[in-house]
Design a protein around this nucleic acid. Structure first.
Length: 910
RNA sequence: GCGGAGGUUGCCGAGUCAGGUCAAAGGCGGCAGACUCAAGAUCUGCCUCUGUAGGGAUUCGCCGGUUCGAAUCCGGCCCUCCGCACCA
């Protein structure tokens, strides 16, 4: 199909409101949704897959008589759009290049610079790409109801989100507390992944150190560790040989840390004051006492200590740290290690690790890092505290670590210090550190009653593939507190505290509600200025009365909003890609569980896998991003849609590659050719037509069952590949193409239209009738009984031909004549008797054949009533297939070399 | 380490839940033939090994078990991929 024909149907669907469903209480509704796209750029094949799958399902549901609503909207909340526009404003070359690439597809080269200038306003980015996504989606023939489009920036939507958060707050699910975030001191702001240089490639996370006080005569030394459980193996303290140390006061206690540590720490703890610089000698001359083990420890300078990591002071545990051990070794100190952790594997002995990695001194830093990682993992996952650790003896490392940490903190022997997982800077070059926000807002997903309710909701949902149910339950268990608001970014202001903006995943959990009545909400908003809590309560089923004081002229609209919502909600099916599982989808389920009941709860979830291109991951850096627009231009919407359906099951990775694509195109072109050359004729009722019809009845039923089970790939292969193959076969059996196609035309076009709607619409109008195939119904075929037998007969015929070929191959005989002898009356009778009554009442003549019957029973059958007549009828075909003459005989036992059994005639070549 | 998915004949990929009809669908690719001046497209056959009669042997990650019978069920092991969090 050319782009023009596709465009033609897209416009006609649009004009006739084919995909704008009316509320209709007489029909079952079906609400299908896909997470809204984030509008910072155009979409690629990967995004298209999920929407295409959803559209195929939506179209199928229409054929089954459902009143289908397939809406979409756009997401604009969060920091990325803001960050991008800021970067464009700053003139960041990578970002400019990225947006030039996006724009290239849509704009003339001379207009691009102006567009990029406009993009300094984040709203311009959002609205530009929303518009382009709509155009791209239209060009793929999606049956989306475009009258319901809205964005997360729309004021009526934000009223809805505010209502949602007030409801969550009423339920006690929103809390405030302190929370560490990545932070830029230069910019005095929190930073997200996209603000960090290479933040998307090499993720930066927050690590939690235990900063432990080692008290000395004049002041305390604070050493930070990720492994507080090793404190029992301590031998000494290390400070950096080159680091600059300062004395400061923390809640009245004098502590020594590096200058860098001080600068970071003021963003994390309260009551910290700088007092003065501290010389190394002042530290080295003192001894410091360790908590728990109560040892007086020496301080030693070492090169490997990084003054800009943690506090710049570390404690030495040579029994469990490669660095510590090798440093002591290099300095000629004693190497009497204390092992405080034991593993069953015994792989964690420090000396054997050092020798097995071939580490000689501190210069082998790569080897040391590798060995450290292995040791760390091994001990963390398999280790137990050994018997010399007091009350912690015998506990797993995991348990002991948390316990020791909390015990030390409770006893004022330690505090938590946060550090970045790697050294990082922002794209503008400022250092990234960790700051603790004291009044961070959270949604508390850890509440048990909430989890329990969510599990019940999950139990009642359908999942495809089914194993995601388990994933969902796990995600519900794992979820704890989640920060739900940020100090920057686009989005809805938190109703409890408008200095905060609701974070972008948290504002998108129950939003499909708004698809049901966005147009009423808009009117209500325009009339009332705010859609307040009480009005929302009424619309979304929390109260039965429109609140007092609402002007009469808007009451009907409010009632309509509620009715629309009552009719359409909940979501019958939601489709997403699996990376959304542990975050968005879990929030989606849990927020519904908290706020709604009964039919409003999520119905089903279809989780698709990713798209790769020529076997490798699609990413900007690889330059293999294929935009949706280029697909519909280069190939056609229908070919893309067909490819999505046929090339991989929903749950498997889909590989976009030219090779597979060209074979799909070939098949598609065969279909088009068959349709183009079709001339209606009257069927003749021949055997090949009956067989073809029988097969098609089976195929259409299997298509419908597969689609119902969301097994789109099977469905497509059945209704497309299998039917095409049957068509070819029926032709070789003497069928006339036109009359064959005529038999199945109507149903075939309807079923194929879910995959290739434009093509089918075209032929539907040309050959069937002037209605939309997109609105046509499809039912299962009634199987009348004759279908199986005609199919079995054809199989019988093919088996005989295959047998003849095999004999020919085995013997090397190229036959000039083939004699096929079918079983005679007596054997037919005998087989019938055995199949019905067993072997008991056989006569003597019959009994001699029983052993042979038993041996060959697999191939013996009664599937053809009169084998002689059947073979005789098809003698010409057999003869042509084999290229030799064919004799058909009715055999009685004894005449030929082998016994001819029913379903398995004897064959003689000569 | 925990949780999940998976390992099938040259490749991709069905089949495994409900054991026999499975040498195992379909596609790709390859080989041979038909058609064609030729190529392409299309069609037919073959593609684990073997066999002068439609058969046999060995296969579905590895080892063992249950069973008359296992790609399918059970136990153990090896390997690959994904998630393990606050990030959209």
């Amino acid at each position: 199909m050319t782009e023009n024909i596709e465009k033609k149907w897209q416009e006609r669907w649009d004009r006739s409101d084919v995909f704008v469903p009316e509320q209709d209480d007489s029909r079952p509704k079906f609400l299908i949704t896909v997470p809204w796209p984030y509008t910072n750029g155009s979409l690629h094949v990967g995004h298209g897959r999920t929407y295409t799958l959803a559209d195929i399902i939506a179209r199928f549901k229409r054929t089954q008589g459902y009143n289908v609503l397939f809406p979409m909207a756009f997401h604009q909340s969060g920091t990325p759009i803001l960050a991008f526009s800021e970067r464009l404003a700053r003139g960041d070359p990578t970002t400019i290049k990225q947006y030039q690439d996006y724009l290239k597809e849509y704009e003339k080269p001379e207009d691009i610079p102006e567009k990029i200038r406009e993009f300094r306003d984040p709203k311009a980015i959002a609205s530009y790409f929303s518009q382009k996504i709509i155009e791209d989606f239209r060009s793929l023939g999606y049956g989306i109801d475009w009258t319901r489009v809205f964005t997360s920036a729309d004021p009526e939507y934000q009223d809805f989100v505010k209502w949602q958060f007030l409801k969550l707050n009423d339920l006690g699910l929103i809390r405030q507390g302190s929370y560490p975030v990545l932070y830029s001191m230069d910019d005095d702001n929190a930073v997200g992944e996209d603000d960090i240089k290479d933040g998307d490639i090499d993720k930066v996370t927050v690590e939690e150190f235990t900063a432990i006080f080692f008290r000395g005569k004049d002041f305390s030394l604070v050493a930070a560790s990720l492994r507080p459980e090793t404190i029992f193996g301590i031998t000494n303290l290390w400070i950096s040989a080159s680091g600059k140390y300062v004395l400061c006061s923390l809640k009245g206690e004098d502590i020594a840390i590096t200058e860098e540590a001080y600068k970071k720490l003021i963003y994390q703890v309260e009551d910290l004051q700088l007092k003065r610089n501290l010389s190394h000698d002042e530290i080295l001359s003192l001894k410091f006492r360790s908590p728990l083990s109560n040892l007086d420890l020496d301080v030693i300078e070492a090169d490997f200590v990084d003054p800009d990591n943690g506090t710049g002071v570390v404690y030495s545990v040579p029994g469990h740290s490669v660095w510590d051990f090798i440093a002591r070794h290099d300095m000629g100190m004693d190497l009497n290690t204390v092992a405080v952790i034991e593993t069953d594997s015994g792989k964690t002995d420090i000396k054997s690790i050092i020798s097995s990695y071939g580490i000689h001194d501190q210069k082998d830093s790569d080897k040391i890092k590798e060995a450290t990682q292995v040791l760390y993992r091994e001990e963390f996952y398999r280790g137990r505290m050994s018997e010399n650790n007091g009350i912690y003896s015998g506990k797993t490392v995991r348990e002991a670590r948390d316990l020791i940490k909390s015990d030390l903190i409770a006893a004022d022997e330690a505090f938590i210090l946060y550090e970045t997982s790697r050294k990082a800077e922002t794209r503008s070059g400022s250092k990234v550190t960790v700051a603790v926000l004291r009044d961070q807002w959270f949604i508390d997903y850890g509440v048990e009653w909430w989890k329990e309710k969510s599990r019940k909701v999950t139990d009642n949902m359908t999942f495809y593939p089914e194993f995601y149910r388990r994933n969902m339950l796990d995600a519900i268990d794992w979820l704890r507190e989640r920060p739900c608001a940020r100090r920057r970014g686009l989005g809805t202001k938190l109703p409890m505290d408008n200095r905060w903006v609701i974070e972008s995943l948290s504002d998108s959990t129950i939003y499909p509600e708004v698809y049901t009545n966005i147009n009423q909400l808009k009117k209500i908003k325009a009339r009332l200025e705010t859609v307040d809590t009480q009005v929302m309560d009424y619309i979304y089923g929390y109260s039965t009365q429109i609140p007092d004081g609402i002007p009469d002229d808007i009451k009907d609209t409010i009632k309509d909003a509620r009715k629309a919502r009552d009719y359409w909600y909940g979501v019958d099916l939601r489709l997403t890609a699996y990376p959304h599982m542990s975050n968005h989808l879990a929030f989606y389920v849990m927020n519904h569980a908290a706020l709604f009941t009964g039919k409003d709860l999520p119905g089903g979830l279809v989780v698709s896998s990713l798209v790769v291109s020529n076997g490798s991951k699609i990413s900007k850096s690889k330059g293999n991003v294929i935009s949706l627009l280029s697909i519909s231009r280069k190939y056609s919407a229908d070919i893309y849609r067909l490819y999505v359906a046929v090339s991989a099951d929903i749950g498997s990775t889909m590989d976009w590659n030219e090779n597979d694509l060209s074979s799909v195109i070939k098949k598609y072109e065969n279909f088009v050719e068959a349709m183009e050359n079709f001339h209606p004729v009257n069927p003749t009722g021949s055997r090949s037509e009956k067989w073809f019809e029988a097969r098609f009845r089976k195929n259409i039923n299997s298509f419908i069952s597969s689609m119902e089970a969301y097994n789109l790939r099977n469905a497509a292969i059945t209704i497309f590949y299998d039917v095409m193959n049957d068509l070819k076969y029926a032709e070789t059996r003497g069928g006339n193409r036109d009359s064959l196609i005529g038999i199945i035309l109507r149903e075939w076009l309807v079923s194929m239209s879910v995959f290739i709607p434009h093509t089918c619409e075209e032929y539907w109008h040309r050959y069937v009738e002037d209605s939309f195939v997109s609105m046509a119904r499809l039912q299962k075929s009634g199987i009348e009984g004759w279908e199986d037998s005609i199919i079995a007969q054809e199989e019988y015929l093919q088996e005989i031909i295959r047998d003849i070929r095999e004999i020919s191959r085995a013997t090397g005989i190229t036959p000039r004549n083939v004699t096929i002898s079918v079983a005679g009356k007596r054997l037919v009778g005998m087989v019938r008797k055995i199949n019905r009554e067993g072997t008991r009442d056989l006569d003597t003549w019959e009994k001699q054949f029983v052993p042979e019957f038993m041996k060959n029973r697999k191939r013996i059958s009664e599937r053809v009533d009169d084998e002689f007549a059947f073979l005789d009828e098809n003698r010409k075909y057999i003869s042509e297939a084999l290229g030799c003459s064919v004799n058909i005989l009715v055999d009685e036992p004894g005449k030929s070399k082998k016994t001819a059994w029913p379903g398995r005639p004897s064959i003689i070549l000569d």
